[in-house]
């Protein structure tokens, strides 16, 4: 069985983001970029399936700017077997919308016929949380989102999902789409031999046109603003003082 893992190049989670002066988005020029953390979890899970003998090949795919090949190299260094880069934008500030991504992935799914697609539940840049679900709709496959645990057994998979208030376990027929939650696993470090091997692994370059997909944006960004800065707190000396302050402000 092949496992397909879409990975997105996003602003590194350690970077303090800055909104561009014109409010059109976040400044991404000369900023450290990394693999979306949820996608790292997806790559790890796919590699574990391969190590457990439940998958034969792990294919990483990234859709975006050419620089996303660095993200794919990281996936290859972690242990993915080959990569597909779909160059869909020239400007690092262009974000390909979930529906366009899902359509391109549908094209890759048709060509590669994987038994499982493992994707991050959302990208930490735009927090859409949509691509996996849209891909399930386009393929007509089962979906198991927010996976906390994944067991593949023959032609089905048992997935424990993180839902409001607890965990839910479902069984889905393969092929299926699984999206990862934070606690599914802890991604490994790329080992030195794998880092050295990553360059020799195949990376195919494609365009959205190869899959007949138009990536023109359907959404327009009206404005982007930074969250309001929090006011400094005030230390109180006693519970009585706290209660009277809260009353003063009409909080209780």
């Amino acid at each position: 069985m092949k496992v397909l893992v879409p990975v997105k190049r996003v602003i590194d989670y350690n970077v303090k983001v800055r909104v561009k002066a014109d409010g059109s988005g976040v400044d991404l020029a000369n900023v450290k970029m990394s693999m979306n953390p949820f996608d790292e979890i997806a790559v790890e899970e796919a590699i574990r399936l391969k190590e457990a003998g439940k998958a034969d090949e792990v294919i990483a795919v990234s859709i975006g700017v050419k620089q996303a090949q660095e993200t794919l190299r990281t996936a290859l260094a972690m242990g993915a077997d080959r990569a597909i880069l779909v160059v869909a934008a020239d400007d690092v500030h262009t974000d390909i919308e979930p529906l366009a991504v899902a359509k391109i992935l549908k094209g890759i799914v048709d060509a590669e016929e994987p038994g499982l697609v493992i994707a991050g539940k959302q990208a930490i840049d735009n927090d859409m949380n949509a691509t996996g679900q849209m891909l399930a709709a386009l393929t007509g496959w089962a979906q198991a989102t927010f996976a906390n645990k994944l067991d593949v057994d023959g032609d089905s998979a048992t997935v424990t999902r993180e839902v409001d208030g607890g965990l839910q376990t479902i069984k889905v027929k393969l092929p299926a789409i699984v999206t990862t939650d934070l606690r599914l696993n802890e991604p490994r470090y790329a080992s030195l031999p794998n880092i050295m091997k990553a360059k020799k692994k195949p990376m195919e370059e494609k365009t959205p046109a190869d899959y007949g997909v138009d990536v023109t944006p359907r959404l327009s960004i009206v404005s982007t603003s930074e969250p309001p800065t929090r006011q400094a707190g005030e230390m109180v000396g006693s519970v009585d003082e706290l209660v009277s302050k809260l009353k003063e402000r009409g909080a209780i």
Partner: peptide, 15 residues
């Protein structure tokens, strides 16, 4: 190079 970037980022996260 890509390899060097990955070496740096792996050792950095290890540390």
């Amino acid at each position: 190079t890509d390899e060097q970037e990955m070496i740096v980022s792996t050792v950095r996260s290890f540390v």
